[in-house]
Amino acid sequence: MTNLKDRQRVKWLFLFIIIYLPVQYGIVGIVGLHHSEPWPSFVFPGFRSVPIAGLQPYSHIDTEFHLYKSDGSEPVVVSGMELFQWVPRSQSRGFLRTHFFEPEEIEQYSPEMKLWLNEQICQTYPGRQFERFEVVLRETFYSRDNNGLRQDSVKTHLRTGFQLPRQSCTEERCRDWPDEKGQSGSVIESQGGSSWINP
């Protein structure tokens, strides 16, 4: 590069970036504490909180969805990755943690959100009709034996849910149920009720 003015600009750019990188890292750290990680930012994931002690049991928390029919039969259990198959796996855990973790948030889902969830269920189970949707957070514990890790026990941390909109699933679409007068219309029954289950 021969142009002196250009060289000067490039030097300033480098200086700016060298100052900017640690500053933005600090901002990412502070904002990330209270909110999610800012984007775009020049950071790679740190995976700070994954160490496990050699002799301790390993455990992980999963989000499950329990789908209840009106006939009182056992619920159909579906994992987050199965219900939202379109979510890239690299994002699935974060997606579930952001939207299906806080009971208050789940109870305040908008009617639009409940309709959308019903659509997802219809696409996963075409032709089947469910009445109630529950989010269940379960922690699975593993112990070690000579053959490696073995599932030991499961603890339920959260169970919360609501009535699904009155829609029938035909093939992969949802259709509004006809109401008593024979007119179609979506009725959202917000019967929440959640509980964090103490250990």
Binding site: W39, H99, W116
Partner: peptide
């Protein structure tokens, strides 16, 4: 097709 409830942009632009 996502409902607005699920629009959770990361802090930033």
């Amino acid at each position: 097709a996502l409902p607005d409830d699920l629009f959770t942009p990361p802090p930033g632009p």
